[in-house]
Design a binder for these strands. Structure first.
Length: 490
RNA sequence: CGGGAUGUAGCGCAGCCCGGUAGCGCGCUUCGUUCGGGACGAAGAGGCCGCAAGUUCGAAUCUUGUCAUCCCGACCA
């Protein structure tokens, strides 16, 4: 069996690729930059979707669906928005193919040229705001709180499975409000939802923050984000929530009559998380043996592997395991009974470990005789033998414990690799070795860009729940009122 | 788009300099022995050597062209 995974130490990025491949999460497709999400990977995404969708609905949002194609002219309506996306758009120019008149194969029918090109959405603000114009006339029509689950296309030069692909799946919330305050509160609320989701479900601790003007979303007035630290000390932007001001309302002429009977532009937000979260999940917890999943997003929480030699043993052991499965399912657990007779136990152990199943049960003739079962946890790779009578209780406690300890482990790691730095040498050192540099910043884009040029580190965010503190920017020497986070990022 | 490289079995690669019936590892199939941490042995199946033209009695190998992909830069959720 040559199923070795490259170690993190050896080559972190090959380790990541190995995990994605060997845990059968996704693979590259025949289309450059686009991935095939395989059933096991998609199942994890479905769990994330389901949890997020519930949270959106609990905060008053509803789902809708807008077109994949956006007329080119829509894009030019919001100036900074076009600029931000123009360089990475897929464009539809024709609508028909024909037999090649000069040889074999098929060619684009030159007669079938579209009058106006269509852009495959890189994000949906424009088409949605064009639609909202018709929906909004009065303050009574507000707020509109819509979300859509969709795929989008951004023609990236260099792609990596889940982290950056030309096509990706995501959700995008687009809300319309009567006042600035309400829209701002919405943007902040959704950032909170994302942070809760990342921490409670994915067990990934995040820093809530604001993006600098330079890193802000194209068309936004303020961009809020959650930033996570991966095991190589690099930052991963896990979600963003934008306060769009009246930019899109003005661009698409969306006005409403307020209570004073005055025409006013609508206030907007948009917010999204994507399949990139899968990348965060993988990189935050996994080890050199494969994927490690937090129970709350694991498609399989418990896998049962039977062990036997003879036919007699096989029957007894399979019956024994089937009963355990039933009992666990009765408790609402997601259980896989791996009764394949085509693979051996050792192979199965390795395979489920690779796929990150949190808890594994193994039972053989010895256990049938003694009324016991071997229980192994994926996060610590430890195992023990327990009495099958106390199995349910034990496993439920264990799953909880795994969820918590994964979060704590990730949090400890982030703390250990976040450093307050006050001098330029310290700054370079931290950023170079992988980690968050918690440093003063003079607030200028000029300094931010110069630091990026010098170290490849970007300003990840200005942390939200942070006290102000006077200091000096280690790069420019100018005064600063607060610390921000610089790091290399994905 | 600048710099570098690679296209040979499902995957990973050797063969190419020095032309002569296409090879290895993994995976796959069958049989036997195994089965409490990725089993072992034996026998099999699987190829337009990226594509096209040229040189030659003969091309995976030499020449020219072409297409595609990957890596390093610039750009990015």
């Amino acid at each position: 069996m040559a199923k070795e995974i490259t170690t993190r130490q050896e080559d972190y990025s090959r380790w990541y690729t190995d995990i994605v491949n060997k845990a059968e999460l996704a693979e590259n497709s025949a289309v450059r930059g686009c991935m095939v999400i395989k059933p096991y990977g998609y199942a994890i995404w479905e769990f994330m979707q389901e949890a997020l969708d519930k949270m959106f609905k609990a905060t008053g949002h509803v789902n809708a669906y807008f077109p994949l194609f956006i007329p080119k002219s829509f894009f030019s309506k919001e100036a900074s928005h076009v600029e931000g996306f123009a360089k990475e758009c897929a464009v539809v120019t024709h609508y028909r193919l024909m037999k090649n008149p000069e040889g074999p194969g098929i060619v684009v029918d030159p007669e079938a040229k579209l009058e106006e090109e269509l852009i495959v959405r890189p994000t949906s603000e424009t088409i949605i705001w064009d639609t909202y114009r018709n929906w909004i006339k009065s303050y009574r029509d507000l707020p509109i709180l819509c979300n859509q689950w969709a795929n989008v296309v951004r023609w990236e030069m260099r792609t990596r499975l889940f982290l950056r692909t030309a096509e990706f799946l995501w959700q995008e919330g687009h809300t319309a409000h009567a006042t600035r305050e309400e829209a701002m509160a919405e943007a902040e609320k959704m950032l909170g939802v994302y942070a809760d989701f990342a921490e409670k479900y994915m067990a990934v601790p995040v820093i809530r923050g604001i993006k600098s003007a330079n890193e802000r979303f194209a068309g936004a007035v303020e961009t809020f984000c959650i930033e996570a630290m991966m095991q190589d000390g690099k930052a991963l932007q896990a979600g963003t929530s934008h306060f769009l001001g009246q930019n899109f309302a003005k661009a698409f002429d969306v006005k409403f009559l307020n209570k004073e009977n005055k025409l006013e532009y609508v206030w907007a937000t948009s917010w999204g998380v994507s399949t990139r979260l899968m990348g965060a999940l993988i990189m935050a917890h996994s080890d050199d043996n494969g994927l490690v999943l937090p129970p709350k997003v694991a498609p399989i929480e418990v896998v049962i592997v039977p062990i036997y030699k003879t036919d007699d043993q096989q029957q007894n052991v399979l019956d024994y395991c089937a009963k355990m499965k039933e009992r666990l399912e009765a408790k609402g657990l997601r259980v896989k009974f791996d009764d394949r007779d085509t693979q051996k136990p050792g192979f199965k152990f390795a395979e489920w470990e690779m796929k990150g199943v949190p808890v594994r049960l193994a039972a053989g003739p010895r256990d049938v005789e003694n009324g016991t079962v071997e229980i192994a946890r994926r996060d610590t790779l430890t195992k023990q033998v327990i009495s099958e009578q106390e199995m349910e209780e034990h496993i439920i406690g264990l799953l909880d414990d795994i969820q918590n300890s994964l979060y704590n482990r990730a949090l400890e790691y982030r703390k250990a690799n976040t450093h307050r730095v006050d001098t330029w040498d310290e700054f370079k050192n931290v950023v170079e070795n992988g980690g968050f540099a918690y440093a003063h910043w003079d607030g200028t884009t000029e300094t931010e860009l110069a630091i990026k040029e010098a170290t490849k580190a970007t300003l990840r965010c200005i942390p939200l729940d942070d006290d102000l503190e006077d200091g000096t920017d280690p790069f420019s020497g100018k005064p600063s009122k607060r610390r921000v986070i610089f790091a290399k990022a994905y």
